[in-house]
Design a protein around this nucleic acid. Structure first.
Length: 479
RNA sequence: GGCGCGGUCGCCAAGUGGUAAGGCAAAGGUCUGCAAAACCUUUAACGGCGGUUCAAUUCCGCCCCGCGCCUCCA
């Protein structure tokens, strides 16, 4: 097995993964800010980290992943106030929505999904540590990190901080800072705003401190991997490094992984352009969760993904091919025995799949390994060289792959229904479908094609597609 | 302007100093009562100009084009 290599933004190089604690990989992922529904760009990143964690476990690692939920920030405070409710009540809806969305996409929950507002004390403690080291200053009740005290600032994003003149840019917010580069650790409350009364004064945490405090609380001073979208590298992750390393004196993160952005039909996704999609928008347009997951994972994470209507069609058809193949393996009849060549072929596919993912989570290679196998095995089945005992072995391989890709389960309808989408008419039950198929077979046998076609049409109207196969078996699937 | 990603068949997208993966689509075929579905086969591609080299899509330089970050946006 190939050693796992991942691209580290810090060094701009592929580096081998060697966890600090043998056998366990500790990951921190920047999660959602729950002021609205997450958009599909967010899910590109979340699907990526899902593939990563699934692959690490496939390789036998224990995974300890922490994902934050930012449930306090300027927008949340404003929106909650506008709605006349507390921030906890305001964010609850979007946290639930996030959980539902991730479930629909088969994104596994991290071991720890933690809310910022449950960790105010940890943030206060971390800020105090920085204060003791004289790395902060207070201005109008807000506490800032003094970047000039952290010479390594900029090492992640390679941004030329010296060139950032104080005041050269529009002031970020209404707070007074000594230097434009400095960032808020703690923000003094504005009149009427939600705040916490703490040892460092009344206020609320800045955005960056949240991730440092929670990451180190659960994962230790040094994490193996930190993931997020490319846009977070600066300033968010840069600031995380500054705070954390200044406080502990240890390296904060060994491997920084950044997922490239998704663009929509060639354009940046933005509300003003009107091309801003949430998962639910796509479901409402009739797209399946598995289609979206496939499209999001089919492009390797460091490459921009152009999300298009055309791409969705291609993704849907690709998922179909994988599912059809698996269904054929499970239902078709084969001659007794086994074929050593098939066994070897399956092993090669497994090795290729694994090698692809080990190479910086190259999902395109991993998928190609599967599709190559699909074609070769289909050919063998057509030629009759595929044997009965090869089938369970091939099914096992597909399931192994799917432990990471999570595309094969035909549960799109179920997932959509949970979210209130999909067909309003109740779907036929499996037994109803099977009864109708039997009836159609009987009609065909007595050459009553009018009746058999009628049943076929009825099923089609209910979204059930029949496949008359060569060996006489009937397969069906939901459209 | 600084930093970064990218331009490979009609579309999506790997990869390599020497015969360019895979998927979708298309065309042909197999199967079938008809059809559909499924499956098989085939086709076709390295932005431009120079340079290094026996050999460049791959390395170097310049140019053109697209996208991102440089303001709490994944």
């Amino acid at each position: 097995m190939n050693e796992i290599h991942l691209h580290n933004t810090l060094t701009n190089r592929l580096e081998p993964l060697s966890p600090l604690h043998p056998g366990e990989v500790r990951i921190y992922t920047c999660g959602p800010t729950v002021y609205a529904f997450a958009h599909i760009g967010n899910f590109r990143t979340f699907v990526f980290q899902d593939i990563l964690r699934r692959f690490l476990r496939y390789r036998g690692y224990r995974v300890l992943q922490v994902m934050n939920v930012t449930d306090v920030d300027d927008r949340i405070i404003q929106n909650a106030a506008a709605a006349g409710i507390g921030i906890r009540d305001y964010t609850e809806k979007y946290i639930q929505a996030f959980l539902e969305d991730t479930d629909a996409l088969h994104i596994e929950l991290p071991e720890e999904l933690v809310r910022a507002t449950d960790h105010i004390e940890d943030m206060v403690t971390l800020i105090e540590r920085l204060q003791k080291k004289s790395l902060t200053y207070t201005s109008d009740g807000s506490i800032y990190f003094r970047i000039s005290q952290f010479p390594a600032y900029g090492k992640l994003s390679k941004i030329d901080v010296a060139g950032m003149q104080a005041g050269a840019r529009v002031d970020v917010d209404q707070y007074e800072k000594d230097d434009a580069r400095d960032f808020a650790l703690w923000k003094a409350p504005k009149p009427g705003e939600h705040f916490w009364d703490t040892r460092i004064g009344p206020g609320r945490p800045g955005w960056h401190i949240e991730c440092s405090a929670m990451a180190m609380k659960y994962l230790g001073d040094t994490l193996d991997i930190h993931t997020g979208g490319v846009d977070l590298a600066f300033p968010h992750h840069e600031n995380e490094i500054a705070q954390s390393e200044a406080a502990t004196g240890h390296p904060f993160v060994r491997l920084w992984l950044h997922a490239e952005h998704l663009i929509l039909e060639g354009q940046k996704m933005s509300k003003s352009l009107g091309n801003f999609y949430t998962l639910r928008d796509l479901f409402a347009k009739g797209h399946k969760p598995s289609t979206i997951r496939y499209l999001l994972l089919s492009v390797p994470y460091r490459r921009q993904l152009n999300f298009t209507e055309d791409g969705l069609t291609q993704a849907r058809n690709s998922v179909e091919r994988l599912r059809n193949f698996t269904a054929r393996l499970k239902s078709a009849q084969f001659a007794e025995g086994s074929n050593p060549e098939i066994q070897a072929r399956i092993e090669k596919a497994e090795a290729d799949f694994d090698a692809g993912l080990a190479d910086d989570i190259n999902t395109a290679i991993a998928l190609a390994a599967i599709f190559d196998l699909v074609r070769d095995v289909n050919t063998a089945m057509d030629r009759g060289t595929f044997r009965q005992q090869d089938a369970p072995r091939a099914v096992a391989a597909m399931e192994k792959f799917d432990g990471i890709l999570a595309l094969l389960a035909d549960d799109d309808e179920e997932k959509l229904r949970k979210l209130g989408f999909g067909t309003s008419k109740p779907g036929l039950s499996v037994s109803q479908i099977e009864t109708m198929i039997e009836e159609r077979q009987a009609a065909k046998k007595r050459r009553d094609f009018k009746r058999s076609d009628e049943i076929r049409q009825q099923l089609a109207d209910s979204g059930i597609l029949l496949e008359d196969t060569k060996d006489g078996a009937i397969r069906w699937k939901r459209k």
